[in-house]
């Protein structure tokens, strides 16, 4: 999927399965994944990352029940509903964790640049 056409969006992280953008105008993040794109406030974005990290992947793999093959996430304040297979969980986890590393890096750069400027 191409980057959404908005000059305030900056790409934070991308994998072959999706991307995360930051909107500097609305102070939110856009998550592009599995053919859809949706906005999250910073706190909701971090909460989603935590939810995805808490999914018990080994249990999904080992459990032979059909219902164990997918996980459904309904993030608050979002119209998006994620229906994730094991592969999706791993891909989404990689995407969100990568984005978080980039955001942390941005915070570090801010710290350093501010220290230099003062």
């Amino acid at each position: 999927m191409a980057k959404p056409a908005c000059k305030n969006l900056e790409e934070i992280f991308r994998t072959p399965h999706g991307a995360v953008y930051q909107c500097n105008r609305a102070n939110c993040f856009w998550l592009e994944f599995a053919g859809g794109i949706s906005a999250f406030k910073a706190s909701d974005f971090l909460h989603l990352k935590k939810q995805v990290e808490q999914i018990d992947v080994p249990e999904m793999v080992q459990n032979t029940a059909r219902m164990a093959d997918i996980v459904i996430l309904n993030p608050f304040r979002s119209e998006r509903c994620f229906v994730l297979t094991v592969t999706d969980v791993l891909n989404l986890r990689e995407l969100l964790q990568g984005a978080k590393v980039m955001l942390d890096l941005n915070s570090m750069l801010y710290d350093c640049l501010h220290a230099m400027a003062v």
Binding site: E10, Q22, N24, N27, C28, F29, A42, S43, L46, K100, L103, D104, N106, S107, Y110
Partner: peptide
């Protein structure tokens, strides 16, 4: 690029 995380909270995730 704005530091949205820092704007939201001064606590790190950890």
């Amino acid at each position: 690029m704005k530091d949205l995380l820092r704007l939201r909270t001064s606590l790190t995730e950890e």
